[in-house]
Design a binder for these strands. Structure first.
Lengths: 186, 186, 186, 186
DNA sequence: AATGAATGAGCCTTCATTCAT
DNA sequence: AATGAATGAAGGCTCATTCAT
């Protein structure tokens, strides 16, 4: 029996299934076969039909996961204008994400580890924003004289490391915020 | 023609080949076939013969890479007694490793990313030492009141991030050392 | 957006695209997908709509290519009445085609090699004409006593072989003409 | 149940099966699956194990078919020293092959049509020998002043054409021999 | 200590065609 | 006259591991 839905809906369905499979079994195990089985679709051909190739699907997955994650971060940052506070809120939000968006975070890490070219995209996306904050803050004199690129990379890595910890999230967020507040102050 | 060498020598040869392959092509591409080809061996059977299974080889690779890396760090730390200085030297040594032991560092990352159970081992090894330093330093009153586990994890992550950067190693080391010196001071 | 053209025009467009794809990539690689991509069409469905099946398209391609090729040969033969001269002109014209109608010649070969049933059609078309010439010429006593079918097949094959050579076309044509002139003379 | 034979025997078995399948169904239909089914083997993996890839198998098939075919030609040419006679015997032997080695001839054509790079090898092998004969004969003054490369290509093509004919083989051979004897004479 | 041979399951991608508007 | 969506089968290749000597 042939079920027909719109292109966009089917793509969404496939991406959602892929996210769930990657989150559960890891990128390397997220084969087309597993994804269609998870989504209850007829054959892997359906994925090939809607996505140019594996890389195309990966990219769609990355963008979807990133979009979902970014919503919360943007919401938390909304209305915050103080430069130092922005960094603090950003870090806290990211740590919060590790628990509220556990699935998406796992997916982002797995995809980055499994698809090197997408890792570059993701890294640029995450570190770029922070680095610009630091550069601007230094012009305004609210931060110390550190290298913005290095600081941005270190903050991003520090947040990633939180994912592996089983320490209470609020505690972790607080500690990390204070740690980097000391590190960046003028 | 059958070439016979000692068990230990053969294992070493295979591990060395695996390290080179992983460093060059990544963990996911480091199949028995590729390792065997790289080492110029006759068949994958030789690996199966000397290692119980893939995980066994991975573990041997991890231990070998870790051992080579640890030599330098221990050498740098030799004779350093001041608590703060130990942390500073440790960080600098690790960043230095990123360039002097490029291959091993790549392998450690790849294996950790590809084999989750080994990642735990590696993490414990790297973070444990630092954490004990911090805890002890806090007892002596030379560090601030941060959470030692979180600080250790963040430092380790910050060092890892340095591997992805193309900033001059000495500059990076200096920046990272100063960054964390600010973060840990009492 | 839906572009509507006449049935005939659309068929023509598809056949033209197929010819170009076959000429460039070979029959085996000339899938509906590739043809559609080359023609800038929306989906393979358009081919299935205008042609009953793959064989139907192949046949259309063959006829189109054959028609284009035949124009030149007929033009060259126009006004030639001498029996021997007709054969000589025919051979020369065919070798000329190899360069003036490179694309169509490639297509004819590829289709013949890839679709055996069409190969029969093509063979009959090419060899039949020659054979009738030889039979008639023998009745008139201008040719020797060879088997007309065999001679016709050999001439056709000899021409095909010219397509694989990188010898100067004019030289090749001249040599081939003289070769077969010796072979057929009474 | 696992049946183990020597490498060479298994390769031979696979090549033989491949030859039969190609002869019966054509190159394009000679998939690994069909070949293993024909040979009664366990899985396509067996082919991949004994041949580096499809091209490797194709090459082995080509060499095997060519070797079998060459035996007869060499036997026929054995003891023939007269230059013109050699060409006559060569042509006759090749036409004879079309019927005594039907399977191998079909395979050679199919492989050449399906694997362009091997076609070059085959062409060189077949035409090269003839061309050297013609060049040498011209030096000795027994042949006319034709282009040896063109004549060689035409002879080879003429022989190929014989495969498509249903004319009695002996008649065909005789006709072709006389045809080219006229074409090459001084 | 080593080797030769074989294995089944899985990978992503491509194929021409069909269902349903 | 055209389109959107879906399809099952098949393609060659790679994986770590096992049987058997």
């Amino acid at each position: 029996m042939q079920v027909t839905v719109t292109e966009a809906a089917r793509r969404q369905q496939i991406v959602d299934a892929a996210i769930e499979v990657i989150a559960e079994h890891g990128y390397a195990q997220a084969s087309f076969a597993r994804i269609v089985a998870h989504a209850g679709l007829s054959s892997t051909r359906l994925i090939s039909y809607h996505f140019k190739n594996k890389g195309d699907l990966d990219m769609a997955v990355l963008i979807a996961a990133l979009g979902q994650v970014d919503e919360l971060v943007n919401a938390r940052l909304d209305g915050v204008t103080d430069r130092v506070e922005m960094v603090r809120v950003y870090i806290a939000a990211q740590v919060e994400l590790l628990h509220t968006h556990r699935e998406q975070i796992r997916v982002l890490r797995e995809v980055a580890a499994g698809a090197p070219d997408l890792a570059v995209v993701l890294h640029e996306f995450r570190v770029g924003r922070l680095q610009r904050q630091f550069t601007q803050g230094q012009r305004e004199g609210v931060f110390g004289g550190f290298d913005p690129a290095i600081m941005a990379g270190t903050v991003a890595a520090g947040i990633d490391a939180a994912a592996d910890s089983d320490i209470d999230p609020d505690t972790y967020a607080h500690e990390l915020v204070e740690l980097f507040t000391r590190a960046i102050r003028a």
